[in-house]
Amino acid sequence: MPEGGTYFGQYVTIGIFALVGVVLVLGTLQLAKLVAPNVPDTDKYTTYESGIDPIGSGWAQSNVRYYIFALLFVVFDVEAVFLFPWAIVFERFGTQAFVEMVIFIGILAIALLYAAKKKVLEWQ
């Protein structure tokens, strides 16, 4: 880790970039609001200004099979998090760390195999 000063200095840079990003979005929106002519019309607020009017609510129940993909993402996200410290200490721990990670990924591979076997990864 870099020393205190440069460590926070790097995050100040990130903060400045984030601030510029926020100002850029809000600034252009405000600028558009100032410059653009304001002629309100109810037709302009419909979902499709020139098209078929939408029926019912936009809030629909989605298919439960999407949840599998969300959960797969979470599982392998957590796995990826463990890969970072592993990659750093790998050189010092050698075979031991390698075997430990192979077991870890192997158990998760069983889950992926099971999901593939049950055909939930295919979209029918």
């Binding site: 599982v75 957590v78 430990e100 077991i103 158990i107 889950a111 992926l112 939930v120």
Partner: peptide
Amino acid sequence: FEVISMLLLAALIGAVVIA
């Protein structure tokens, strides 16, 4: 650490069974 992978395995299998 290895038990965590078992936990994740259980979560995934549970989701597959539901879906």
